[in-house]
Design a binder for these strands. Structure first.
Lengths: 216, 216
DNA sequence: AGAATAATAAAACAAACGTTCAATTAATTC
DNA sequence: GAATTAATTGAACGTTTGTTTTATTATTCT
């Protein structure tokens, strides 16, 4: 047999991407075979090579698109011209929302870096560094404006990102806490971490506090 | 050929463990072949099976020993009977020191969980959960004693652990900051995060502040 | 309707995989 | 010094891997 009725390149490629993200997140890039992926899509392994020349190309494409999506999400959600506290709050909200919406893709982008060739690894890391740089800039602005009290901007940025990204490890929708509650708590922890004056800028603090009271 | 002169089971096994940790951390468990590991040790692949019946047994052994080491390190360094702030400081110091001393083993234990069989995965996760529980207990004690101000103990514990473990991702000895400086800064961030009264308990705050001044 | 193109299947490739087995030599025990 | 045990080699096993090639069918274009 050959071309099947109703087959469509666009749909197949999208199906391959989605299945690949799920399989790689679950079993790992090396552990996922092209045949396994093809079977998940409902196609023969050879068909995959019409869309991605090699297995590594597939991985790289997934990662690149994920990082580009993250940068675009931040650019769309950042409140231009707002004070640093609001900017930081927007960064935290965007980061958590984006990563929870795409848990599997995030897992892939964070865990499978070592399967990339050196130059592709560099490309992805560059995108990640650029994104982290945005956070450092916000923190610096806040320090210069006297709103934040931070010992080491670089360290604080890394700590914040690790803390926020860590949410995807344990958060499961529909369990004890809602996404809104988790986000609120992380916002409050973030503001403590950067030494922001409580009640300044985010418009979230009272709200957070009420939730805290309910859970106490 | 067969047994080589000067060969020793104990030494070989130790060499296998060490090489395996390094190779798995660098290339991933699935990507590391038994032949590659054997070559690193300077032995034929078949020789590995004298010490570990399967590749997965090797992985599991590495992880189990790492988690046991972590628990033992905490038990030895915990200041029994001290106030919660000192306990928390000890937890942070031990966690960071242990994980930086064994960056590769930590990487393996955190990244290769999905390569374990279900029951072995459960065993490792149980050990990890028990360790995290210790932190939650310290936080709870601090809240009850009125020393800490925490919205959600569980969330704060996870945030702290992610934040601390994240150090191994970017920290490299001999770069901008020393381990002591990093630890001091993380201690201070931890105390902010749990809402500890500044200057209480840890005996580190003034020291931290001096470093901050130097870097500013 | 016929020609061109897009999408797939089926089969095959060499290479690499984890693992096993029998043979062989070094060290230890008696 | 002979017998036993410990440590390792070298070769082989059957699978599975990513990928390529060729053929075949569905769709689109003229």
């Amino acid at each position: 047999m050959a071309r099947t009725t109703g087959s469509d390149g666009g749909r197949t490629e999208a199906a391959v991407r989605e299945a690949a993200v799920n399989l790689i997140a679950r079993y790992g890039y090396e552990a996922m075979s092209m045949r396994q992926l093809a079977a998940e899509v409902g196609v023969q392994a050879a068909a995959l090579y019409r869309y991605f020349p090699t297995k590594e190309d597939l991985l790289f494409t997934l990662m690149r698109d994920h990082m580009q999506g993250l940068r675009e999400a931040w650019e769309h959600s950042r409140p231009a011209g707002a004070d640093p506290a609001r900017q930081l709050a927007a960064y935290v909200r965007n980061h958590i929302a984006f990563h929870i919406e795409r848990r599997h893709a995030t897992h892939v982008s964070n865990m499978e870096l070592r399967s990339l060739s050196p130059d592709r690894l560099t490309q992805i890391l560059r995108m990640r560094t650029a994104y982290e740089k945005e956070l450092r800039a916000v923190l610096r602005d806040g320090v210069e404006a006297g709103i934040f009290n931070i010992e080491d901007t670089g360290l604080t940025a890394m700590a914040l990102i690790q803390m926020m990204t860590g949410v995807i490890v344990w958060f499961r929708p529909g369990e004890r806490l809602s996404l809104a509650e988790v986000t609120a708590t992380y916002l409050s922890m973030t503001m403590r971490l950067v030494g922001a004056n409580i009640g300044v800028g985010t418009g979230e603090e009272r709200h957070v506090h009420e939730h805290a009271q309910l859970r106490a």
